[in-house]
């Protein structure tokens, strides 16, 4: 009998700690598939951040470093600069990347560090219990914006992909979503593309994945997926925000590495 479905080899056996209906598991699986497909698990070094991805080091069969809150791009910089042959990626949520880690992500992107950032945007602080994030939509309820985010008090949400795309450093930035199978197929392609560009030495790559957090959104898993399509994508449009690889030869500007 032909086997048509299997756990990716790069994905560790065992259950994750993610809540029922959380879409992070889908993203993990797609990353692991890409590591398998590109045969780079043995070269991969992941960087887990603080937030729901904090335990990511338990879920992949590659080397991992756990980083302080927001600092994953800096940690990844240190790894990649000294291990240029490693394929270095970070997994960061929106609190980690778009609040406490804004300096690190902007400057890693501006330097064109040859790393790949998987940015999981679920518009809320999940691990700490549903507080408002920089990406929380206007009107969205959270434990620190209980009547809904109000711009006079709490400002407006940050569109990270658009902001980073204003920089000359990044090689590739795409926003995708996991709300439908068709969209998930695009997530898969974006993950492949980002890692392939890193392998080619193109420089900084980032895939923003709009994700669901049914627990903290107070929705059922199905409703949460619907919300992505109904509300989230309209504020955070999907698409490729930067792809400089076509314009310039791959790796032209990416920082080199240490000579081993």
């Amino acid at each position: 009998m032909k086997q048509v479905f299997a756990r990716p080899r790069a994905l560790s056996p065992g259950a994750t700690h993610y809540c029922p209906g959380c879409t992070y598991g889908i993203v993990h699986r797609l990353i692991a598939e890409a590591l398998d497909d590109l045969a780079i698990t043995g070269r991969a070094v992941g960087v887990a951040s603080v937030g729901c991805t904090v335990l990511a080091y338990d879920y992949f069969e590659c080397d991992f470093q756990q980083a302080a809150h927001g600092r994953a791009p800096a940690v990844a910089t240190g790894i990649k600069r000294t291990r240029p042959d490693a394929v270095v990626f970070t997994l960061q949520g929106d609190g980690d990347l778009a609040a406490i880690g804004t300096a690190e992500i902007i400057h890693a992107a501006a330097r064109g560090e040859n790393i790949t950032v998987f940015f999981l945007n679920n518009t809320i602080y999940g691990m700490t219990g549903g507080q408002m994030a920089p990406t929380t939509l206007l009107g969205q309820r959270s434990t620190t914006s209980q009547a809904g985010r109000e711009p006079g008090r709490a400002g407006r949400p940050i569109r990270v992909s658009e902001m980073l795309a204003t920089l000359d450093g990044p090689a590739y930035i795409e926003r995708v979503a996991v709300d439908t199978p068709a969209h998930a197929a695009k997530v898969r392609r974006a993950i492949h593309r980002a890692l392939e560009l890193q392998l080619a030495g193109a420089g900084f790559t980032l895939v923003e994945v709009l994700s669901a957090c049914p627990t903290n959104w107070g929705l059922t898993p199905g409703e949460a997926l619907d919300r992505i399509g109904r509300e989230v994508i309209s504020y955070y449009p999907l698409g490729v925000y930067r792809d400089s690889s076509a314009a310039s030869p791959a790796g032209a500007d990416a920082p080199g590495g240490i000579s081993q």
Partner: peptide, 28 residues
């Protein structure tokens, strides 16, 4: 010397770059 230098965006970033490099086995 065949090494790497990064002028970091902050002291926070710098020490965390050192964490990355040191964790990857390089004297940092």
């Amino acid at each position: 010397a065949g090494g790497q230098f990064v002028q970091a965006e902050s002291e926070l970033a710098a020490i965390n770059m050192v964490y990355g490099a040191g964790g990857a086995g390089t004297r940092a």
